[in-house]
Simulated scan of single mutants.
Amino acid sequence: MTAMSDTPLQSLQDDVQRLLGRCLLRLQHYERALKAIVAHYAVSGPTETLMADRDARIADTARKTLGLLVGELFGSGIVTNATESPPEPIPASTGSTLSIRMGIALNLTDTEFAQLTSDLKDLVVLRNTLVHHFIEQHDLGTLDGCHDARNALVEAQTRIDHHLRQLNEWGNDLGRLQQQTAEHLRSEEFRNFFVNGNHPDGTVYWPFTEIVSALKKAAGELAVDGWVSVEEAAAWISEHYPDQLPGAYGCRSWRQVLHESRIFEIRYFETEGLRSAWYREKRGH
């Protein structure tokens, strides 16, 4: 921008510079807040690597442009009634590894979704214009050009401030939901699910239960030719894991636990005329 001796023109140029700087600072604040939301609205992966995965997601998000951030948010963090919502946060198991999938989404009507999509695409265009093309579009060497530039920047600041307020509302909602999630994770209900695999609806996620783990450990200690007596395993578990009882999982007996879990095979052998139940872990478990 060329320095001019005309005081009114220079005053206008200074005003344009001030407004442009303010818009760019607000856009940077918007991008920073959006990166925080994109990095934290969803969590997934094996529990062993959950923190490392989160840090990697934060680092990856930090490198993304506003356009990429907006594109990632739509269809996952922001959805419409016509879009398939993210799956419910249920655990998945691969062998003995537990994975957690949990996400928060803003669900809009089709009309709201279309409007927000258009608004945010316009914001991305506005950002790119201010950063790369603003001086090309306005003749800042004339009074009329500076007036037009100032009016454009006042309008741009109004639009950016609207999006900032909207984003702050989303961030506040996300913070509240994260707080509620943290309280749930500390609840006895979640502990019963996480430690014992008992769902609130009364069903049991058997691969994740302590009682199945205890049965596997008993088999490791007591198995003969790959099979272990159910009676001996029950006695061993009673000594080493006294809180792990069939009744805690809605079962009447150890044989019912073995049957319901679908993780073990059960066979009956006769020894000295006495028939007894034995079990072993199925292949693939």
Rank of each mutant, 00 (worst) to 15 (best):
R262S: 03
R63P: 01
K35R: 15
K121G: 10
T65G: 15
T142V: 02
F269E: 12
M51I: 09
D173S: 11
G77T: 11
L34I: 05
Q115W: 07
L50M: 14
E48N: 08
E136F: 03
Q256T: 03
I37R: 02
Q178G: 05
T109P: 10
E88I: 05
L98A: 00
H40W: 13
E232I: 01
W254S: 13
L68Q: 15
P86C: 12
N107A: 05
Q10F: 14
R101L: 01
P242K: 10
F113I: 04
S44Q: 11
G45K: 13
E270D: 10
L130T: 06
T61W: 06
V224T: 14
E48C: 07
H163Y: 05
L222I: 09
E155I: 10
N192L: 03
N107R: 07
T65C: 02
D14V: 08
E48G: 11
E169K: 08
E270T: 13
G175M: 04
L20M: 10
I90S: 00
S99N: 06
I263Q: 00
R127W: 05
L98S: 00
D139G: 04
S213E: 14
A33G: 09
S213P: 03
R54H: 08
L177M: 05
N81R: 04
A82V: 07
R32D: 09
H29N: 09
L9F: 10
A214E: 00
N81I: 00
V195E: 02
D60N: 10
T49F: 10
H259M: 09
S5D: 14
R159K: 12
T209F: 03
T109E: 11
L66Q: 04
V38L: 10
R255I: 04
H147L: 10
A105W: 04
H240I: 01
L153K: 07
H133V: 03
N198I: 14
T142I: 02
S238I: 05
V79P: 06
Q178V: 04
E112F: 01
D14L: 12
Q28H: 08
G226A: 02
H40T: 14
V16L: 05
L116M: 12
S76K: 13
V16F: 08
L98F: 00
D110Y: 04
I100K: 09
L126M: 15
I104H: 13
A39F: 05
W254Y: 02
R186N: 12
L69T: 08
Y30L: 13
V195T: 01
V124Y: 05
M4E: 12
K282Y: 01
K121F: 02
D139P: 05
G103T: 05
E272R: 11
I58P: 01
G284S: 02
N192M: 08
A114S: 12
L108T: 07
L123W: 14
L68M: 11
R275S: 06
M102I: 00
G145A: 09
I100E: 14
C23P: 10
D243T: 04
F208G: 14
R275G: 02
G21S: 13
M4W: 03
I237L: 06
E239K: 04
G226K: 00
N198K: 15
P207W: 09
F190S: 08
S11P: 02
I135S: 02
A62T: 03
T111Y: 09
H285R: 03
V79Q: 12
Q256N: 01
L34K: 13
